[in-house]
């Protein structure tokens, strides 16, 4: 999983190309290199989650031992956490907005709020996993256990990395280390954050809602 950290951070942040620093927008597509690569990276991520979701769907209902999804899912709780994650997309939009208006104070504020909401979501997931484990669904218990924990775990790791990225942007902004285009950095993290949210909506629908 650590390697995912590598991609994420690489693409969220930047390197300077061979082109002159003073004209960062002189690209053939009009998108900056960073933004283009973030889009491409997210495209690639789609297939990562596509593979994991397919694995889960293939094995749906094929577990032999241990509790099944309908027996352990706590749909109201997960609905709340899904809603909280969606709210964090809203606060992320506000952060991007503030960043575009060069409003440092509110950018930091909204980034922090987004990170807190994300952390709340992950906290809910940790709680959920702990409960499931005590209810008899371990990682190695059944096909359902393995594929469920792998899929949602990968998503949880993505959210966690997103939180770390948000926090680091806040730190760096506090210490005035961004001298480039702040708005773009915030926007890149935002793109990633929205992607992770959208993936969750898909997971929530396919994994939690459909079998019940």
């Amino acid at each position: 999983m650590a390697d995912i950290a590598v991609h994420d951070v690489d693409h969220a942040h930047t390197d300077h190309g061979g082109y002159d620093d003073h004209a960062p927008h002189a690209t053939s597509t009009g998108l900056t290199n960073n933004k283009l690569s973030m889009w491409l990276f997210l495209g690639s991520e789609c297939l990562l989650f596509g593979g994991l979701i397919s694995t889960y769907m293939l094995y749906r209902g094929r577990h032999q031992t241990g509790p099944g999804p309908d027996q352990i899912f706590d749909i109201p709780l997960t609905s709340v956490s899904s809603f909280i994650l969606l709210m964090s997309s809203l606060t992320m939009v506000l952060a991007v907005n503030s960043a575009k208006r060069k409003d440092d104070r509110n950018t930091s504020l909204w980034l922090t709020i987004t990170a807190l909401l994300g952390a709340l979501f992950v906290g809910g997931q940790v709680y959920e996993f702990t409960s499931f484990y005590h209810e008899g669904l371990g990682f190695t218990t059944s096909l359902f256990g393995s594929s469920f924990y792998t899929l949602t775990g990968f998503h949880g790791v993505h959210v966690t990395l997103g939180i770390i990225m948000l926090m680091v942007v806040v730190f760096i902004m506090q210490r005035d280390r961004i001298t480039g285009d702040k708005a773009e950095v915030v926007e890149l993290v935002g793109l990633y954050w929205h992607f992770v949210d959208v993936v969750w909506v898909i997971i929530f629908t396919l994994v939690y809602l459909i079998p019940s």
Partner: peptide, 14 residues
């Protein structure tokens, strides 16, 4: 700091 902070927050909430 970010990961420890996030971890403590997540752990406490759970």
């Amino acid at each position: 700091l970010a990961s420890v902070g996030a971890a403590v927050f997540i752990y406490s909430f759970s």
